[in-house]
Amino acid sequence: MASLEQVRAWIDRLEAVYTENKEYLTELDSAIGDADHGINMARGFIAAKQALAENPPADIGALLKSVSMTLIKTVGGASGPLYGTFFLKAAMTCTGQTELDAEGIEKLFEDGINGVKQRGKAVVGDKTMIDAWEPALTAIKDTRQNGASIAEILDAAVAAAEQGRDSTVPLVARKGRASYLGERSKDHQDPGATSTVLMLTAARETLA
């Protein structure tokens, strides 16, 4: 079971992770984007953590909703609405709940990831965060069906997302600002897929 405190720890962990990786993500983004992804993610999760500290939510749905609204307001660019939508859809499936079992964790990520897919309309191979989210979702569903624990499910999700992230390196971007570079977007790792892996890794460290 993942408790309300654990979900809160996930968000707190993300604040630390994105702050530590601020320059790394920004460097990836400066190669094929507009050089602000790390700065934006760090700013967003610093604000999200602060909002939770000021107004501690009573259930997981309310917590994820607070994170969503803060990210939407503070991250900006394309990743603000994308990650904001992830947490908004995840919040809706967790409304009123104070703990999540393996099925609840599956639903959180399934609804959240489907929200991102709907919002961004990207598919695997476009060189976006979907290259990490989509294989992670498949891994979560496959392992959950076989009765796996939360730890096993998230282990599988992280491994699949890492593979997806690495697969973005040789791709030509077809969505987002990087797509205007055409062939010049090759040989660069996608910053969005990279920040997605960090999000899942932090989930593995805190929710299981």
């Binding site: 939407i72 900006g76 660019g77 394309a78 603000g80 609405p81 994308l82 904001g84 939508t85 919002r119 961004g120 969505k175 987002g176 600002r177």
Partner: peptide
């Protein structure tokens, strides 16, 4: 039509 504008307005 810029990715950021479109996604923010849709949201």
């Amino acid at each position: 039509n810029y990715t950021g504008d479109v996604l923010n307005f849709e949201t």
